[in-house]
Design a binder for these strands. Structure first.
Lengths: 219, 219
DNA sequence: TAGATTGTTAATCGATTAACAATC
DNA sequence: TAGATTGTTAATCGATTAACAATC
């Protein structure tokens, strides 16, 4: 059979996890069908956009009926790469790093953090939930030996670039960066910046704007 | 003087924190000037876009010279609402909630988490970094009395909507939602979804893709 | 059959990039 | 003055929305 040409725009890729969420909840509720209009409604979006997005990942809908939830869910899992087991190392076991390491939600997404690193002598050698915290100097050795492809950076911004370089040098090709700094990496390596401050300023702006505008409670 | 009409697109608003980051680093390094080309280079973007974005928030550049770093930084702070002190409450003191509460980065952005809530009897009454963890039943009272405008939700997805309703009812108009579920709120209330899973699938997809493509190390 | 709903084409809207006159 | 660099206009590109024939 011919390979289906799948064009996923950046904007659409950002929407897929939301479809996934909603469909997973539907599936748990025992529903097997959902229409683009229903899906759109629960995500406050346009039904035409839902149909367009879903049609571009395959043909899972039937006119007059709607979409088959389990089928669509499976396709989305495939599409989002949730089927793959991904092993990652985490560098910087501060509060945020510890929170991510213990976050139960990742398991469902196939992510397993297999090794922890820090540069603070106080932390090196200690354990977190039974996992040993290693010195960053061991990164090259461990990453190479376990063929790790993903690195999670939760260090202070000042050392993030240095850590990124070490990870890439050792074979990592995907970096999830929580440090508030822009990393430069060679082509072929993908960086995802998780910018908490960006989310915050988005909301702050709303608060400021609202203060000058009409009070919201008197609709 | 006439009010300057400021049109900020959604996409541009998402870029502003990155400009801010870069300029703040420049300012710390003692630089007072920066060109659109330099700024673009450190963020791997197009210089035309930088100029377009910056020109739409004001006239801080001088042809032949570049932009005045301190001036621009100040304008961005204003624009991003970083000047405003924002007080927030946090609901759900699990690992993620605790990490956010202790995150030192927020202080610089004007955010202060003034109260913690949880529904787990084991946690209620306990302290985190000297702050008392209150029962969620106290949300209406506390939020109203302190006139809190922002709520941070780090509860499990099942209770997130219920908490959102309580917060909104008590007067909150901005919700920072870390629970992996879509919240429905009345108009006038803004929700920012921080979707960790989305970032993860973005990277996972790259890993899968790469396995089928050419090995990246042999550029 | 009649009603519902998809997948897709065409129309609209918005965002990015290129080019350049104006300015330092 | 000559070289550098902005702010903005015009051209391109991409994404969203509307509309509807095809299908169940």
């Amino acid at each position: 059979m011919p390979e289906r040409e799948v064009r996923i725009s950046r904007a659409m890729l950002a929407r897929l996890p939301f479809y996934y969420r909603t469909l997973a909840a539907r599936a748990r509720a025992g529903n097997t069908k959902i229409s683009s209009a229903q899906l759109a409604a629960s995500l406050s979006m346009d039904s035409a956009q839902v149909r367009r997005d879903l049609s571009s990942i395959g043909e899972f809908g039937r006119p007059g009926i709607g979409y088959n939830v389990p089928e669509l869910l499976e396709a989305l899992e495939e599409m989002l790469g949730l089927r793959n087991r991904t092993e990652a190392v985490l560098v910087g076991v501060g509060r945020l790093g510890a929170a991510l390491f213990g976050y139960p939600g990742f398991e469902a997404y196939g992510l397993r953090i297999v090794s922890l690193f820090d540069s603070d002598p106080e932390r090196i050698g200690a354990e977190l939930d039974g996992a040993l915290i290693r010195s960053v100097s061991e990164i090259p050795h461990v990453v190479r030996r376990l063929s790790i492809q993903m690195g999670i950076i939760t260090t202070p911004p000042t050392s993030a670039q240095e850590i990124a370089d070490m990870l890439v040098e050792a074979g990592v090709i995907a970096i999830w960066n929580f440090a508030p700094v822009s990393l430069s990496v060679p082509p072929g390596v993908m960086v995802r910046d998780e910018d908490l401050a960006a989310g915050l300023s988005y909301l702050s702006r709303h608060l400021t704007g609202t203060m000058h505008a009409a009070r919201p409670e008197q609709e």
